[in-house]
Simulated assay, not measured.
Amino acid sequence: MQAREQLRAAKQRRKGDRMVILCQEQTYWLVNRPPPGVSNVLEQGPERGSCTSRRVQMIQSSDFYKREIECFRKALGRNRVKSSICLEAHMNFSSQRGPHDPIMSGCLPSNPWITDDVAYWAMNAPIVVAPTKLRVERWGFSFRELLDDPMGRAHFMDFLQKEFSAENLSFWEACEELRFGGQSQVPILVDTVYQQFLAPGAAHWVNIDSRTMERTLEGLHQPHRYVLDAAQLHIYMLMKKDSYPRFLKSDMYKGLLAEAVIPLETKRRAFQFLWKPLHSSPSPALQLASGEPIAASSPADDQEA
């Protein structure tokens, strides 16, 4: 009786509704696929009956079930994050990095991709007298942002020297030089780093746990460019969890934020009534996306240029 009513209701539906229901059912079975060995309802043709023979072969094999049990155990132990938490983290990341993205928010004092002004490159050079405020703020995003910036690493070194722990950053820099240096210099660099930071009575001895030290000493018999990775990771996590939070709370970092340069936007038009003040001179792609026409240069601007 129920099947008859369902058939009657299906005949009364429109063709578009029947197509939508069919697509929904196919999508459900594509997502919720049957386990291996079970016949698939979406299969077509005479090869559909071959699933039974494959299932019989799988039943006779015990190795198959051992692999399935091991796979399911790994799946149960895998950490999963809810989509809401992932989306919230993505939104926080986007809101934090948005003002620092030259494409989304523009760049001060002018956009070097659409103008001839190179002041943006000069103010954001690897080593400058006074860094910009956006640059100093990025050091507080993550410890990696601080180490990737030569200016931030120099200020962090000054902070560590005041705390008498500058050897940690020096050891990390030496390991980076070993990792990305020339292959012919690897044995010499490994011996130099060991004698300077890890050997008993070294001039700049670093604190490493016994297990990491044993692994490092075993790798020194056949030195290669990655032999100090375990020790470098140990020092990296030590600085990240201990020194880096204190650096962000220190008066040095707060003073850098207060004294940071905030560049002013340069004028884009010779005449004031033609100049439209835009935040950070956004790129032409954003203007096209928002529907605003890109103003063409007037003959007066070309003549003055």
Rank of each mutant, 00 (worst) to 15 (best):
Y226I: 05
E292T: 02
A300L: 15
H100A: 09
M213R: 03
V206E: 02
M58Y: 13
G219I: 02
V38D: 07
F143Y: 09
L160P: 01
V31H: 14
I103E: 12
P282A: 03
A300V: 11
A260T: 11
Y120F: 15
L146Y: 01
V128I: 09
W275M: 03
P263C: 02
F159P: 03
F247E: 04
V186H: 07
C107R: 05
P46G: 02
K82I: 13
K267T: 12
M237A: 09
F273A: 14
V186R: 09
A125Q: 14
F64M: 02
Y236C: 04
V186C: 01
P223A: 00
P112L: 03
V206L: 00
F93K: 11
S50T: 11
I235S: 07
R14Q: 01
L217E: 12
S95H: 13
F273Y: 13
A174Y: 01
Y236A: 05
A9Y: 04
Y244C: 00
F141N: 01
A258S: 10
R153D: 11
V20A: 15
R225D: 07
T212I: 10
L233H: 15
C23A: 14
N79D: 11
C107K: 10
Q185A: 13
P284W: 05
S50A: 14
F171T: 03
A125S: 15
S83Q: 14
A230R: 07
K133Y: 10
D117R: 07
R135L: 00
I59S: 14
L288G: 02
R225Q: 11
Q232D: 07
R97C: 14
T216K: 01
H100M: 06
P109I: 02
A10V: 04
P187C: 08
L7G: 12
D117Q: 12
T192D: 12
C23Q: 13
E47K: 10
Y226V: 07
W275E: 14
A203Q: 11
F247T: 05
A154N: 10
Q6H: 01
H224C: 12
L274M: 07
D209R: 06
P299H: 09
P282R: 05
G45K: 06
G201E: 04
E176H: 11
S281V: 03
D63L: 12
M213D: 06
E177K: 09
K74T: 09
P282T: 07
V261A: 10
T52Y: 06
V41T: 08
P109K: 03
K240G: 10
Q195W: 00
M91F: 12
V56I: 13
D229A: 13
Q287D: 15
P35Q: 15
Q272T: 13
D302L: 13
C107L: 12
I188E: 13
R13M: 15
A3L: 12
L108Y: 07
K241H: 08
A119M: 02
W29S: 03
C51G: 04
V128W: 04
V193Q: 00
G49N: 07
A203I: 07
R67M: 14
M213V: 05
A300S: 14
N111E: 05
K276P: 01
L87S: 10
